[in-house]
Every structure is written in structure tokens, then in C-alpha cells.
Design a protein around this nucleic acid. Sequence first.
DNA 1: CTCCCGATAT
DNA 2: ATATCAGGAG
Length: 212
Amino acid sequence: MSRHPARIQKICQILKTRYPDVKTQLNHRNAFQLLVATILSAQCTDRQVNAVTPNLFAQLKTPEDFARAPIETIETLIHSTGFFHNKAKNIQNCARMLMERFDGKVPDTIDELIQLPGVGRKTANVVLGAVFGIPGMVVDTHVARISQRLGLTSSKDPVKIESDLMDIIPKSKWNDFSLWLIYFGRAVCNARKPDCPNCFLTHLCPYPDKRI
DNA sequence: CTCCCGATAT
DNA sequence: ATATCAGGAG
């Protein structure tokens, strides 16, 4: 179980008070759109993703549309999110696999989701939580960094961090916890210049005024 | 481990 | 100029 149950409980309580109504910031209308938007979000801000998805989903609506489209069309539509060659290819092959193996629908298990091109555990857990309400710990750059700073894990491996966090956070809070750290990471505990002097978790953090 | 890559903040 | 952004694949 938890090595610091009281401290972790306080951290969760404070985060919940600060961020009572968290949800994904990736704009979408359905499961497929969220899957595509999350693939696009790799090493890219949500803001940049939300800037391209309205036009992207106006041009290409269904997995069939993405499967048939010339790759250059997809590349152009997503260009500003970066890694556009890889992302376009992954999204198209993802759409094709959805049609061939999953009846054109987004699957609801992590084992199936991570089979899709461009979909790793982070993307899969985003979709599981937001679309299907299935508990999952989303370990992105924010969750990894802040978990290390708070001393909730000593690992740099996202898979190990995910496991460490699932061991110390109640399953019912996995989805919210990920989002709390992401909101917190953007607003306070950012990568380059964490605002420790004004941080509401400093008294519970073993590494105030330090960088990891 | 390296590569993929544009947009933004510092 | 450099670091970073809701990572994933080879």
C-alpha cells in the first residue's frame, strides 16, 4: 500500500479543492475524434491540437474518411502539431485497423487500444477514462515530472510510474488524479520554472525550490 | 537509445 | 538560441 498515506490523502484533497471539475482539454465530439486528438497531442500543446481539429474533422469525419484520404491531405491538415509525417501515417493506419479489426469503433480495453498505431498507454488511458469512464492512470510529461518532484515515484519509466501511482492512489481517483497533476503542472509546477514560492503543495513536497 | 518536428515561451 | 509541449515507434 501507500508509503505516505496521510500525505498523499492531503495532496489529493487539496488538488480536488483547487481543481474540482477536471476534464480533458482536447475538444472532440465522439470517441474517434478524441482518439485522433490524443494521438496529435504527443509533444504538442492541447491548444495547438484544438487549433487544427475543427477543420480536420470538418474535412474528414469517419474512420473511412481517414482511411481513404491521400496521406498528403492528412499531413497538411495536421501539419502545425509537429511530427506530422508520423502522426498522419499513424492516424490513417489507426483508422484502417479500426475498420478491419474493430468494426469501425474505438475499443474499450487497453490491450486492444495499444494495438492501434500511434496509440500507447498514455493515449489509451486518456480514451478509456474520458470516453468509457474506465479507471486509468495517464502518465504524460506533467504526471511523470510532478510524481517525481512529489516523491511519489523514483522511476523515470512511464510504465513504472503508472504502476507506482496505481499502488498509492485509490482506483476511483486515477482519472481525476492524472488530470489534477496536468492542470497543476500547467499552472504551477511547470517544467522550466516551477513556482515553488506560490505553490499550495510546498508544505507537502519533499523537494521545494529544487528541480528534478 | 534515437528519431520524429512545428509552435510557443523564456 | 534553447527548452518544452497531454508520446510512440524502430
